[in-house]
Computed example of a mutant assay.
Amino acid sequence: MRLTDNVVRNLRVAKIFRENTDRVNSIDFSANGETLISSSDDDSIVIYDCLNGTPKRTLNSKKYGVDLIRYTHAVNAALHSSTKVDDTIRYLSLHDNKYIRYFPGHTKKVVTLCMSPIDDSFLSGSLDKTIRLWDLRSQNCQGLMHLSGRPVASFDPEGLIFAAGINSETVKLYDLRSFDRGPFAAFKLPQDKECDWTGIKFSPDGKLILISTNGPVLRLIDAFQGTPLQNFTGFANNRGLPLEASFSPDSQFVFCGSTDGKVHSWSTETGTKLAILQADHPGPIQNLLFNPKYMMMASACTNMAFWLPLVDE
């Protein structure tokens, strides 16, 4: 089944899970698309089976709290940031709920965490105005960048470069092998007076960069030239929340939640809004991801919703 405008318009909530007592703060699909992991402000980690549409298991992280949960390349291990004690990043074995390694260094809340698509390296960015590069095999930071403001960062799909959004106005591209030499490209964008950048993502084909904000706008730019391509607007974000936006696996569509519980979708090519999808979310949808391998989407407030298309094409 191919993702078309019609399929996007016919996405519907197929299942709702109420495993959490507080806001889900991050979600991540495994690379094979078979499981979804979520972290919540209630200090729990829930793993869902995407093929059967069932919760698989729940792990608790009462001592350190849990945020920004990310699968590593092994489906039985994950990374997450902490919300209590300190700002150490923790590497967790999901199989026996034991920590494999700690990554200390950040002195303030970690606001961005992403795993390399190709190897054991990962990036973290914090309100301490640094981006750190790590390797899962060592607790020592492999590289450190000092910035002038809050960072957002992400790897490209090949894992060779990463983008850093600085001060909500500049996107800098770094080569992973020589990032201490500084960026090889920098794109300055018109600054949003009303909102800050809260996320940055490359499209799966590597050609586009999507910038999400804590306001009612998303920006799409060309990943090579930095040219502004689209501004996606018309969704509610009246609380200044960081709303996660995501690409479809074919890079043709962008999806984003809203504070009024609806999901909006646009065409990356034309910028046209294709659909406003009604979700049964009682709270703001701050997390939304499309499954990398299967025709399904997940969105979360306190509840988790799995979406499937109604039509057969």
Rank of each mutant, 00 (worst) to 15 (best):
N214E: 07
P216N: 09
M145P: 04
L189Y: 05
L218G: 02
R177N: 15
F202E: 02
A223W: 00
L173A: 10
V152S: 04
L133D: 01
F162D: 00
L136I: 11
P117E: 06
G159A: 08
L123D: 01
N140M: 14
A153P: 03
R181W: 08
T170G: 08
G149F: 03
G182V: 09
F122L: 04
L220P: 01
L218K: 00
D192P: 09
A223C: 12
P190L: 10
I118L: 11
I209V: 14
I161T: 11
Q139S: 15
S168D: 09
W197A: 02
F202K: 04
F155W: 11
Y174C: 06
L208G: 01
V171W: 05
K193P: 09
D192I: 15
T227I: 12
R132D: 02
I200C: 09
P157M: 10
D119C: 07
S154G: 11
T213G: 05
L208T: 02
L218W: 00
N167E: 14
L147N: 05
F184Q: 13
T198E: 06
S121D: 05
I131R: 01
C195M: 10
S121C: 12
A185W: 05
V152E: 02
D156Q: 07
S203T: 10
L220W: 01
Q139A: 11
P228C: 14
K129P: 06
I209C: 02
S203E: 05
I166N: 01
V152I: 11
L147T: 08
I221W: 00
L133V: 15
G125H: 04
N214I: 08
F179G: 00
Q191W: 07
L133S: 02
I166L: 10
W134D: 00
D180L: 15
D120M: 02
L173I: 14
F179W: 03
